[in-house]
């Protein structure tokens, strides 16, 4: 092999690698931009969580206000999702879901918790999408996946045993009953799913313990005649 041929081949190899590395840099820069665009949403999400934490100590009369505040904070993320959506190429949502999923799950958790206190219901996935503004045309590329929704809901349930215990401390004996019935319904619903050994399965396993703790509180109240008979 002549020296010239070797040199020109090395050059081709260099060019091939350089152009691939350049493409990699573009890809990684976009990932970074997307991660950064989600940060202000995470800030709002944390504020909402902080607000909801007050449920454990505030008197029952303030619960509705706290929950409404939390939802209002989350609604402020709507224009920010538009910024995120702009960065994601069409059809490539799932390529970047790893960066968005955790935030969406946390927001689902907060919304489900707040709306349980407000309306005694499990917020459906499309309502969460509406609250986040994901259903507008500008945000067509974004979606709340079933997986993220189902995990987010369990996150909300994980908060409830504590809330039940603290309700008793502040002499609110209705809330534990309401919680126990809600957790019961949710546990029955999740039991319908055929889960594989993944993150959702592990989250589901935590539900059993939540349910038991909530029922224990109701048992303690019943034992002492502190529950009103249900109409």
């Amino acid at each position: 092999m002549s020296v010239e041929a070797t040199t020109s081949r090395a050059q081709t190899v260099s060019e091939t690698l350089s152009s691939a590395i350049e493409l990699l840099e573009n890809d990684q820069n976009l990932k970074k931009q997307i991660r950064e665009s989600i940060e202000p949403i995470d800030d709002l999400s944390r504020s909402a969580t902080t607000e909801l934490n007050k449920l454990h100590s505030a008197p029952f009369s303030q619960h509705a206000e706290i929950c409404q505040n939390a939802i209002n904070i989350i609604i402020r993320s709507q224009p920010l999702w538009v910024d995120v959506a702009k960065l994601i190429p069409e059809n490539e949502f799932y390529r970047y879901q790893f960066a968005l999923g955790p935030t969406m799950r946390q927001l689902t958790t907060s919304i489900v918790l707040a709306r349980f206190i407000l309306h005694d219901e499990l917020t459906p996935s499309h309502t969460i999408s509406t609250i986040l503004g994901l259903q507008s045309d500008q945000n067509g590329v974004l979606q709340l996946s079933a997986e993220d929704y189902l995990q987010g809901v369990i996150g909300a349930v994980n908060e409830l045993p504590r809330l039940s215990v603290n309700a008793v401390t502040s002499q609110n004996f209705d809330l534990p009953i309401k919680i126990s019935s809600f957790v019961n319904d949710i546990f029955a619903s999740y039991s319908l799913l055929n889960l594989r050994n993944d993150a959702l399965r592990r989250k589901f396993d935590s539900l059993k313990y939540d349910l038991k703790r909530c029922e224990d509180v109701v048992y303690d109240l019943t034992l002492r005649g502190l529950t009103k008979p249900r109409e």
């Binding site: 309306h119 005694d120 499990l122 459906p124 996935s125 979606q143 079933a146 029955a188």
Partner: peptide, 26 residues
């Protein structure tokens, strides 16, 4: 995904109970 959800009755307070459970199950 969107077709999975069935709207909850918006004024659901009165129909809570068996109906919520049935609704969730479906």
């Amino acid at each position: 995904m969107a077709d999975v959800d069935v709207l909850m009755p918006s004024e659901g307070e009165s129909s809570v109970g068996v109906s919520r459970k049935q609704h969730l199950m479906s």
